[in-house]
Amino acid sequence: MKNILQFENVRHIYHTPRGEVVAAEGLTFSVDEGEFVAIIGPSGCGKTTLLSLAAGLLKPSAGSIVREGSCGYMLQKDELFPWRTIEKNIFLPLEIKKQNTPAARERALALAEKYGLGGFLKSYPAQLSGGMRQRAALIRTLATEPDVLLLDEPFSALDYQTRLNVCEDVAGIIRSEGKTALLITHDISEAISLADRILVLTARPARVSHAHTLGFGDLPPLKRREQSSFSGWFETLWRELNA
């Protein structure tokens, strides 16, 4: 398996006029191609910092971060631009990366079509439900065919029922597209229901304290929640988070 993302002994310091905060220290982990890795940690442990580092938006203070290929970032809210149609929203990364060719647009549209957005392409985000909007946000992220998806609690802004559905959706799309994904969340059950591997972070400065391979295979999220091992994993991770 090829390594797509590699954090090696990463240290990151935030500087403010009042002082400095060490957000991460000795952070080492890697994500393999095609793998779905979830990172959970206590709140305020610098999860978003970690994704910004992975996306290359921040440079680490020390250590190295190697990423093979491009990345797509998905945030808590869909962040669709309300003045653009769904179609135009999906084309946004193509425009930015100057890949706005007919072929690329067609590929993005085919993706939208495949995952049930075909009827909404000319609609505005305000006309879509929260779940559909998040799905559109995922298609936008996939439009440039990124090698790794970075997911920053992408379901936390949704209500519980929508959340389970969208989680199911997104997991299905990511698996069937064979994408590599790095999910950051504070929701333990979400991590278990989505990931192949879970990394537990310590409180600030963030460091990987435990790593688990789940072994659910390609089982979709809702099915995973029915498994007897689900609650076992939950307990283990809960204990480790609160240690």
Binding site: S52, A55, L57, C71, G72, Y73, L75, Q76, K77, E79, F81, L92, P93, I96, K97, T144, L150
Partner: peptide
């Protein structure tokens, strides 16, 4: 919106 700026930057804008 700072998050939208973050999104744009993550696209390499």
């Amino acid at each position: 919106d700072q998050n939208k700026i973050l999104l744009m930057r993550s696209m390499g804008a």
